[in-house]
């Protein structure tokens, strides 16, 4: 048999294999795109940036622990005449809110979420994904799944490290552990919701990174402090409502509550979870719809 004829027979095998399997469904396609892009995403230069951002709180925690060990910092004080000790669990709770939920998670969401499609456009590799018998929405969703795994793999270990560094300072790891689990879940949710919003922004806007940064550092901080209904249009508002439940209930909570007064008016957990879920689903559906209908002109 000559080479050409062999190719033809082999080609029939490929045809038969494809016909046997059929067109992959949305989820199967998404999982295949996820497989395809995860390692590319994980080993990109952006991951170094992500590791630096997630490593910041760990460095701070180490610093605090060192100060506490050498008694360079006094963690006791007086508020309204009564003594107050700032414990490790309280500091950890504060770090979860201030460093992770208000900074790390949205910033990573901006840089990764907006790049899900934009990177493929910039690298001119989108064509290879968009000339396959799978929906474009599945391409976006598969890449979104890769984003979730990638960011969680970097952020969550950083949180666990901070927990084990900070909590033992006048705290009990065993007693605080359930709150760590809740915090990890909360961060996972934050990563998912911010990622979906920035996936939408990435699919929609011509300069998604800039738009995303305006959202994180403009809209969100302003929206949460302006009285009225504007806060309902921010993710931070709904995440805020979940934070106090993730915090340790010890004697030092009074100070943390004072710092985070906004939480007092927060609605119920189910209300927050419901709206976060709505934001997640609506923005993801919106992003897949935009990607499905948008024409991407790759610059020559």
């Amino acid at each position: 048999m000559n080479e050409g004829a062999q190719e033809s027979v082999d080609g029939q095998d490929a045809h038969a294999a494809r016909n046997r399997v059929g067109r992959p469904g949305f989820l199967t396609s998404s999982v295949r795109v996820f497989d395809f892009t995860l390692s590319e995403m994980l080993w990109s230069r952006r991951t170094i940036f992500m590791a630096l951002v997630a490593g910041g709180p760990v460095a701070l925690a180490l610093l605090l622990r060192a100060f506490a060990s050498f008694a360079w910092l006094d963690f006791e004080g007086r508020v309204d005449g009564s003594s107050l000790e700032v414990t490790g669990p309280a500091i950890f709770g504060l770090m979860i809110w201030a460093f992770y939920l208000r900074f790390t998670v949205p910033v990573l969401g901006v840089f990764y979420g907006t790049a899900l499609i934009a990177d493929e456009v910039e690298d001119k590799t989108l064509t290879y994904l968009f000339t396959r018998p799978i929906s474009r929405g599945a391409v976006l969703f598969g890449k979104y799944l890769a984003y979730l795994v990638c960011t969680n793999l970097v952020v969550l270990p950083s949180v666990v490290l901070v927990f084990f560094i900070v909590v033992p300072m006048s705290g009990n790891i065993g007693a605080s552990f359930p709150s760590l689990v809740v915090d990890l879940g909360l961060l996972g949710l934050g990563i998912a919701v911010y990622g979906s919003i920035f996936a939408l922004i990435g699919a929609w806007f011509k300069h998604p990174l800039l738009t995303g940064l305006v959202f994180v550092f403009g809209w969100e901080p302003i929206g949460t402090v302006v009285p009225g209904y504007m806060k309902n249009l921010t993710v931070a508002y709904y995440l805020q409502g979940l934070v106090p439940h993730a915090m340790p209930q010890d004697g030092s909570m009074g100070m943390v509550r004072t710092v985070l007064q906004a939480f007092q008016a927060a609605p119920s957990i189910s209300f927050n979870l419901f709206w976060l879920s709505v934001i997640l689903v609506v923005t993801l559906l919106g992003a897949t719809r935009i990607v499905a209908n948008k024409e991407y002109v790759l610059e020559q």
């Binding site: 399997v21 067109r23 992959p24 395809f36 396959r132 018998p133």
Partner: peptide, 8 residues
């Protein structure tokens, strides 16, 4: 990977 995306 691309062949898998093509349905194989």
């Amino acid at each position: 990977a691309l062949a898998r995306l093509s349905g194989l």
